[in-house]
């Protein structure tokens, strides 16, 4: 199969959220000795951009976007060994450490943000739910994170986001990380009040926000 056709099929499988087809076409790309970096950029990412645009216009719904993201991740698993073997790297966009704060185990929103960021080529370290402040900081240090993303769903756990930033300041680490916040009750006003570096109302805003922050670094 010619190169263009494979990439086109790959992008289409992503848009369709067809995990099997995406994996199949990723394999076909490797068998046809396509450049793995180009396969990511003009196949996988092209598909995500296309569906992202449709989502923005309201033509596709959130579950379809998530299916596409899953297909993306599975196809990426096929390409990763090849990228590594050829010592190629997708453009390093930065590392984001993400998790919910202490006392909050609501993970669905956080998981969506995590997935969306991954499909946009960020290195995402997801530390799950119910993290206390110090362990988040430890994990961020370990992961050499650029951005720390904190999620909460309950008004009762929101203060933990504030506390996190205060502790970061006390430990003289505030300048080292960008801290972004999100979750049901969180607003731009709250983000400003606790001196967070950013806030997004919905998951699709996350990559734009993070990109903008890292660019400032």
């Amino acid at each position: 199969m010619e190169k263009e056709k494979i990439l086109e099929n790959l992008a289409f499988a992503i848009v369709e959220g067809d995990e099997d087809k995406a994996v199949e076409n990723a394999k076909a790309a490797m068998e046809a000795k396509l450049d793995p970096l180009e396969t990511v950029e003009n196949g996988l990412s092209k598909g995500m951009d296309d569906i992202g645009e449709k989502f923005g216009k309201g033509e596709v719904f959130l579950p379809e976007l998530l299916m596409a993201a899953n297909a993306f991740k599975s196809a990426m698993e096929i390409l990763k060994p090849e990228l590594e073997a050829q010592k190629m790297q997708t453009a390093q966009k930065g590392t984001i450490l993400i998790g919910t704060v202490k006392g909050d185990v609501h993970n669905i929103g956080k998981d969506i943000v995590s997935t969306v960021l991954e499909t946009k080529g960020f290195n995402v370290v997801d530390i799950g739910v119910d993290n206390d402040t110090l362990s988040i900081i430890q994990e961020a240090e370990k992961a050499q994170a650029d951005v720390i993303a904190l999620s909460c769903l309950m008004t009762t756990t929101m203060p933990a986001q504030k506390e996190f930033i205060e502790v970061l300041e006390e430990m003289n680490l505030r300048e080292k990380y960008f801290v972004i916040v999100g979750g049901g009750p969180v607003t731009q006003e709250w983000a400003d009040e606790i001196k967070a570096d950013g806030y997004g109302e919905s998951a699709v805003e996350a990559p734009v926000l993070v990109k903008e922050l890292i660019r400032k670094k």
């Binding site: 309201g58 719904f61 959130l62 579950p63 929103g109 969506i112 049901g184 919905s202 998951a203």
Partner: peptide, 9 residues
Amino acid sequence: VVDVRNGAY
């Protein structure tokens, strides 16, 4: 019920 269009609560 989630608003499936954008995930809104």
